[in-house]
Simulated assay, not measured.
Amino acid sequence: MLVNFWGPEKTISYIGCAVQLYVFLWLGATECVLLVVMALDRYVAVCHPLKYTTIMHPKLCLQLAIFAWGTGLIQSLIQSPATFQLPFCSHQTVDDIVCEVPALIQVSSADTIYVEIRMFVASIILLVVPLIIILASYGAVAKAVLRIKSTAGQKKAFGTCTSHLLVVSLFYGTVTAVYLQPKSRYAHEQGKFLTLFYTVVTPTLNPLIYTLRNKEVKGALKRLGRRAWDIQNN
């Protein structure tokens, strides 16, 4: 996708499109599950701090990571073959920046109702249900934080959650708009921008969002800013 952005030719082979879709769905579904795992991690850290090391032990963390990647792979192996069973003989232009299910549904000449139903069900399982779990976790976190008497303790607890909440807002706010209404022409036109956002912008911002709470990273950014300012003034 990034190669096509920078190169003069905006083409991709059929095999390349298939591989891109498989990987795209795998990573996207894995991200959905990982965000839920991270929300549960923060719930345990804030609501049960004394039991955190007992509950979130390395073996459980490994199991949760395997579950997330495994769920993403299963989703990709189910959704991708069903999408590529659609006929695309009379269409050679994918009106999107990446080969994903809504874009391929738009260019198919056949009845896509079954693929849409399958994708809608997958979206409910991997988008709506995880979002409900995340919101419920943060509801419990908010109650626990409000019970903390010290302001410093509240700030520390909220600081543990802000970066994850920001990533959840950026990711779910865009991907749900694309995958819950794939056949709508207006949704598709708007969805190209949203696809760019959750495939490029959000992953690019993730390292910055998660590391800004790190004192060493903050110090490095401040030094870099001062150095750039000094160079400009000189």
Rank of each mutant, 00 (worst) to 15 (best):
A29V: 09
V33N: 01
L34P: 02
L35N: 01
V36K: 03
V37Q: 02
M38C: 09
L40N: 03
L40W: 01
D41A: 07
D41L: 06
Y43C: 02
V44I: 15
V44M: 02
V44Y: 00
A45K: 03
C47A: 14
H48A: 14
H48D: 11
H48Q: 15
P49S: 07
P49F: 06
P49G: 09
K51F: 12
K51D: 15
T54M: 11
P58W: 04
K59V: 11
L64A: 06
L64Q: 03
L64W: 04
A65P: 04
I66K: 08
F67D: 00
F67R: 06
L73K: 01
I74Y: 07
I74G: 04
I74T: 12
Q75K: 08
L77M: 15
I78P: 01
Q79G: 06
S80M: 14
P81L: 05
P81W: 05
T83S: 09
L86N: 04
P87D: 09
P87F: 07
C89R: 14
Q92D: 12
Q92H: 14
Q92E: 09
D95S: 13
D95F: 12
D96C: 13
C99S: 10
E100V: 12
E100H: 15
V101A: 01
P102Y: 00
I105L: 15
I105G: 03
Q106M: 09
V107N: 05
S108W: 04
S109V: 13
S109N: 13
Y114R: 14
V115K: 01
E116W: 06
M119V: 09
F120T: 10
V121F: 11
S123A: 14
I124K: 10
V128C: 12
V129R: 09
L131C: 09
L131M: 12
I133Y: 06
